[in-house]
Amino acid sequence: MRETISFKLNDKPTRLTLDGERMLLWALRSELSLTGTKFGCGEGCCGVCTVLVNNEAVRSCQFPVKDVKGKEVITIEGLANNGNFHPLQKAFIKHNALQCGFCTPGMILNAYSLLLKNPQPTHKEILQGMEENLCRCASYARIVMAIKTAAKEMKRGGNR
């Protein structure tokens, strides 16, 4: 059923008229041409489509767009603040925590939500919190380092 859905997207009020049962991933990628959010498996298995809805990491390929009504969505495009990279973005660059980069937006946003809930995670908690995000290039070791670095940076107050 077509409906009009209003929500906040990367700090901007946004309104879409579409079938609310469609998945958020496609609303972002094809209705709004925000292509930083990737498609990897379409079945909730890989996490490359991860975005934040009210600061919670969700899999946009499984998330009906009607469920963002009145909420706040952040995609990778909206993470930097006025061109200032988020500590996670800086740490990913610093540690070369990526290869092909296809999983990177999802990794960063999942880590963001993890650090919100648990600002100083242990090594094990990072592994657990990131477990469902897959990286075929297997940059895992460096992603863990980047998350640790970002956590330290954010503790020092460099939240954005």
Partner: peptide
């Protein structure tokens, strides 16, 4: 990596 900035911002 020279492509890192592009890849962390989408």
């Amino acid at each position: 990596r020279t492509d890192a900035a592009e890849k962390v911002t989408g």
